[in-house]
Design a protein around this nucleic acid. Structure first.
Lengths: 114, 114
DNA sequence: TTAATTAAGTTTATAATATAAACTACTTTA
DNA sequence: TAAAGTAGTTTATATTATAAACTTAATTAA
């Protein structure tokens, strides 16, 4: 049985407080985390910019951008620029919230004594 | 072509400095990270203790403990206690180093502007 | 002017991972 | 002595990450 405190959000499994909350699987991925990390600071970025900064292959980046979009963490606009296709990514409010929550949870894994 | 600065360790791929270093795949796993996190603070722990604190299934925990052991991040001693099998885990120096390096790299994903 | 190269991606295939279910071996209790 | 519990391991499967192969259109070279 899993319970959650309505006041503080603490999760109780098998009658003991869970000390390691789940890490959002959408963000717990090297490339997706790098992309979100960039989008947090630049607010808007082209596919090619993300590809260069992350050193990812285009295929991998394409897949991960779609996952972030499907999760509602980023908004994606596809347009043409100088006759070439251009994909622009922008983090959403939901994405910012998810990132902040992820970092919060992650810190509990990194600093168990505090 | 991949280069690395002998002074500061910076990695250069395709002639540009890599801003996101690879996250150690051994530690970039929810359960293994939780286990290491616990072992950092308690220094030594039984299988059952780790199982209770992480809320993992025994099977999953068994697999992940073996991966940490194979990587040399923990030392595992199997013995008997009151007629029952007992598995004791202890983090190694290599494990501590790997954890510290992982946290360091991870922070660059979480704080891109700094 | 057509053949090769580059740009900006997407789709598909595969290798690696995480996870739980099923199983093992032994012990204790009813 | 049968059932239930302890402490795990092994195996099977579902999910993920990733790169290779492909697409479509534009540019440059022959």
């Amino acid at each position: 049985m899993i319970l959650q405190c309505l006041m503080c959000g603490a999760v109780i499994k098998n009658n003991n407080i869970v000390m390691f909350k789940d890490l959002d699987p959408i963000l717990h991925s090297q490339l997706r985390l790098a992309v979100i990390s960039l989008l947090i600071s630049v607010k808007e970025a082209e596919f090619t910019f993300l590809k260069e900064k992350t050193n990812a292959t285009a295929g991998n980046l394409s897949v991960q951008i779609n996952k972030l979009k499907d999760a509602g963490y980023i908004d994606v606009v596809k347009q043409f620029n100088n006759n070439y296709p251009q994909t622009i990514c922008k983090i959403s409010t939901k994405g910012v919230d998810a990132f902040e929550a992820y970092v919060k949870v992650l810190k509990t894994y990194m600093n168990p004594e505090t």
